[in-house]
Nucleic acid binder design. Structure first.
Length: 875
RNA sequence: GGGCGCAUAGCUCAGUGGUAGAGCGCUCGCCUUACAAGCGAGAGGUCGCAGGUUCGACCCCUGCUGCGCCCACCA
């Protein structure tokens, strides 16, 4: 059982010091077991699985954002009474992690081959232990309310079993196949890559036009990859291209290799591009591969897995980028062959992990046949079973699933789930399920490759819950409710979870809502990157400003799908807000506020009624905003209420009420406690630490983590009280403005008489207005030296002031002139509308009425200001 | 090549068919007994450009310009 620390209000420091208490509070929550889910409880379930961070790195700001949003959602649901499970874990991140560890090895002058597969994998596990620990610590610092008893890793035994089960099932359903295809090959990582692991960029290259054949039977083809001509086995032209009709079906000689290759007619060729003729290299280009299949062309592999040339004497052994100029140089030796060389900007694929130029390569790989799976994934979004926020991104999702290529899932790596397929001595292929023994005997060998890391990630929403075992967790918490992740992995991850979830879980999509947050950028809107040196480490802000300030900053900027620029000032502002909350609470506690339930309406002042009603409204606003995942607006609404309304006005009015003592003060304390209680609970999902500290002090209860989420009192708002408070605020502001214009110091008291306050309904607010505006009661011999008229909702109040001859006429004239100009502008605008005959017909009645009212107010204002100005000679 | 998004105050961003908003920054004045990480009062915007619809457009439509992102097998 957690015990709230007892704090003596008067001992509270004037600043919130997060560093001193956060760790202890977090430990207290863990000890109390608040974050441990119980599948057997009767509560409605609410589950979010963490997007498992890669074990390779520590958490960056994007993670901090993601975790803040997830934590806010889960904390709120917990307070609403749900059985909440936020399941933590990490991803083995196959190629990324292997690369990191290989780089470590390189520092020791070793390669993975020096260690051998087994020892290398051991080494990666060591890395995982070290790096993973850092991540877990960061999550604690952030205050993540995760269920640590359920922590998973994509390579742990259970998840490996899930992977094997899934593979086997897809294999048996013929949704996984092995084929020789042109795939994206990274010559540095020496593995196949899926389409989305390739990043395209516009690179400068050369387009070289080469004459094939000779004399009348020659044709010019163009290429940016001259070295591939060593593997050419045809030239292709469009079937309808009359220029080349006579050549189709003939053979033509390829320069350098001297190979005689057929000229084929193929629809793929664009007759308008270049010369309309294409060299065909089936082994090294995906299009050419297809052409080759259609025309039964041989595939001639001329490059090895490192990208070095394997054939043709003089070029053998050259790396591809050395071979390219070498081939061109050799072609130039015969002056008739190279028809043209020109610079050329074109799109080139790079390995997303190491930036090496990807080489299309013919090889035998495993693929997932995505069509039926992608169809289901599209349908789930189309029919609304899963909703994507923001909806604009749903279109992008659909475009993608509708045009998806088969997914290459085998990787020539060592770190990952080994493909559960065994090959026999007589070309047998056996897929081995998790409960089956692999075949033994001479010549049987397991496939050496591992699976794409996204294969296991795609299973995460159910494998992490225990699938394929029918665990209580799977039954209770699948489908999960919300997925919170960045839009940058919509295709990598979200689509694949949808495909696999729908397939493995009998058509049940893995989540109801997908929230795609934006990317974190630096203050100038630039992407954070290590090479730019503009990365902000969340730990730095945690140390300087505390977890709540960091979380609040991130949540406040979190508009769905929109990137966020982060600057240090934001964190400072959030820290200041936490401190404001701290001091407001401190004030309330010092003055004896305590939680006594919702205050009885009887005997409340206008100020009390107003703030209680406002708190009610904020509760429903925040609920609505949370339900629609508008975190930024949740924060904004609470910020405005706490700072601009509760602190700036209610607390100041409360001071007056407390000074009255007795029953009035007692009720004020109740209202303070009530409103503060609501505010703290509403803020808790975003700023858990400061709210916990203050709430336990206010209520003497166990923990706000398990407090009830606020609900509105359900009573009808008192608009009269609200209007009177608005009037008080306006009156006070106008008087302060006047004082400022007149150059009065804040401390300087001025005697004043308020005329018309009673009829304006502000009779009982006389003291408050005087305190807030620093006005003294008029002495018996009061004589006003100047006056100020303020037009309020309840009527006009005239403030007569004894300025003792210090009236600054010039300042007043300036202000009046400004007021006059504004009023005249408003009048003109209103007249323009009202004089338009169509306006009265077409505009809604309330708009017309409002416009008329505005006009009248402007006219009255002009009259008053003009009178003022006339009464103040320019002397 | 296809698709999408964004252009609003100095900066980062909200916003609604009917008088332009916030935070930070800036100016002036204040240590006013919760808070100087604070208080009070201000300045600052022809809501990218050009048309159109409408009584009325920052908001809806069209085009343009600029920026960004995603997808793509342009040799």
């Amino acid at each position: 059982m957690a015990v709230a620390p007892s704090i003596e209000p008067t001992q509270l420091p004037t600043r919130w010091s997060p560093q001193e208490v956060e760790a202890a509070l977090y430990q207290r929550w863990l000890d109390a077991g608040y974050f441990t889910a119980d599948p057997a409880s009767g509560r409605p379930p609410f589950c979010i699985v963490i997007p498992p961070p890669n074990v390779t790195s520590s958490l960056h700001m994007g993670h901090a954002l993601e975790h803040t949003l997830i934590d806010a959602l889960t904390r709120r649901r917990r307070m609403l009474g749900d059985e909440v499970l936020w399941l933590p874990g990490m991803d083995h991140a196959g190629i990324a992690t292997q690369n990191v560890v290989e780089r470590e090895l390189a520092k020791e002058g070793k390669s993975r081959h020096d260690l051998g597969r087994e020892r290398f994998v051991e080494r990666v596990w060591q890395w995982k232990a070290q790096s993973g620990g850092k991540i877990l610590n960061q999550m604690r610092r952030l205050g993540d309310g995760v269920d640590w008893s359920r922590e998973r890793f994509t390579m742990d035994a259970g998840l490996s079993r899930a992977v094997q089960t899934m593979f086997k099932r897809l294999f048996d359903d013929e949704l996984i196949y092995r084929a020789e295809r042109i795939i994206n090959w990274c010559p540095r990582c020496q593995t196949a890559l899926s389409d989305i692991e390739v990043e395209h960029s516009e690179d400068a290259g050369e387009l070289i036009s080469i004459r094939y054949g000779g004399g009348a039977a020659s044709v010019v083809v163009a290429t940016t990859r001259a070295e591939t001509m060593l593997g050419d086995t045809a030239v292709a032209v469009h079937p309808d291209d009359e220029r080349y009709q006579h050549l189709v079906g003939t053979e033509i000689e390829v320069p350098l290799t001297g190979r005689r290759v057929p000229v084929v007619a193929d629809e793929h060729v664009d007759p308008d591009f270049g010369t309309g003729a294409v060299k065909v290299t089936p082994a090294h280009d995906p299009n050419d591969f297809e052409i080759g299949r259609r025309h039964d062309l041989p595939t001639l592999t001329v490059m090895d897995e490192r990208g070095a040339i394997t054939a043709h004497g003089p070029f053998e052994g050259l790396a591809r980028f050395e071979a390219r100029p070498a081939v061109v140089a050799a072609l130039r030796e015969d002056g008739r062959i190279v028809a043209e060389e020109r610079p050329y900007l074109h799109s080139v694929g790079h390995c997303s992990r190491c930036d090496t130029v990807v080489e299309p390569r013919l090889s035998l790989q495993w693929f997932v046949k995505v069509e039926p799976l992608a169809k289901a994934a599209g349908d789930a979004v189309r029919d609304g079973r899963t909703q994507i926020h923001p909806p604009e991104l749903a279109k992008r999702y659909l475009d993608w699933v509708d045009n998806m290529h088969d997914w290459c899932i085998s990787r020539q790596l060592w770190w990952g789930h080994r493909i559960p397929v065994w090959y026999g001595p007589n070309s047998e292929v056996v897929c081995v399920g998790p409960d089956e023994q692999p075949p033994t005997g001479d010549g049987w060998q397991q496939d050496p490759d591992v699976l794409d890391t996204w294969f296991s990630s795609a299973l995460w929403p159910f494998s992490a819950l225990g699938w394929p075992v029918r665990t209580a967790d799977v039954q209770r918490f699948y489908p999960t409710h919300v997925l919170v992740t960045g839009y940058d992995i919509l295709f990598f991850w979200v689509v694949r979870m949808m495909m696999f979830g729908l397939y493995a879980m009998n058509g049940t999509a893995p989540f109801h809502d997908v929230i795609l947050h934006g990317l974190i950028r630096d203050a100038n809107g630039k992407k954070m990157s290590k090479s730019q040196g503009n990365v902000i480490d969340p730990l730095e802000w945690l140390d300087h400003y505390g977890a709540d300030a960091l979380r609040y900053t991130l949540a406040r900027g979190a508009n769905p799908g929109v990137d966020m620029a982060l600057a240090e000032e934001w964190a400072q502002g959030s820290r200041n807000f936490c401190n404001k909350l701290w001091n407001a609470s401190r004030f309330a506690l010092i003055n004896g506020a305590a939680l006594r339930g919702a205050p009885d309406r009887d005997g409340l002042t206008d100020a009390d009624t107003w703030i209680v009603d406002r708190a009610d409204a904020v509760v429903s606003d925040v609920d609505e905003l949370f339900e629609s995942f508008q975190f930024g607006k949740v924060c904004e609404a609470l910020y405005h209420f706490v700072w601009d309304e509760f602190c700036d006005w209610y607390l100041e009015l409360a001071k007056v009420q407390l000074a009255e003592g007795g029953q009035r003060a007692e009720r004020t304390r109740a209202v303070l406690g009530h409103v503060l209680d609501i505010v703290l609970r509403l803020l808790h999902p975003v700023t858990p630490f400061v709210t916990e500290t203050l709430w336990t002090a206010l209520t003497a209860r166990e923990s706000i983590v398990v407090a009830d989420w606020p609900s509105a009192t359900g009573r009808v708002a008192d608009t009269g009280a609200a209007q009177r408070i608005i009037d008080v605020r306006k009156l006070v502001t106008e008087i302060r403005r006047f004082r400022a214009d007149q150059g009065l110091k804040p401390a300087q008291r001025v005697a004043a008489r308020l005329l018309g306050a009673d009829t304006a309904g502000l009779g009982e607010h006389d003291t408050a207005v005087r305190v807030l505006a620093r006005l003294d009661a008029p002495p018996e011999s009061f004589s006003a030296s100047t006056s100020l008229e303020v037009s309020l909702g309840g009527g006009i109040v005239i403030v007569e002031l004894d300025m003792q001859g210090v009236v600054d006429l010039a300042a007043e004239r300036t202000r009046l002139a400004k007021d006059l100009a504004i009023a005249e502008k408003v009048l003109a605008a209103c007249d323009a509308k009202l004089n338009n005959p169509v306006f009265a017909h077409k505009a809604p009645a309330d708009v017309v009425a409002k416009t008329q009212a505005r006009r009248e107010a402007a006219v009255a204002e002009i009259a008053r200001v003009t009178a003022r100005l006339e009464a103040r000679p320019n002397q």
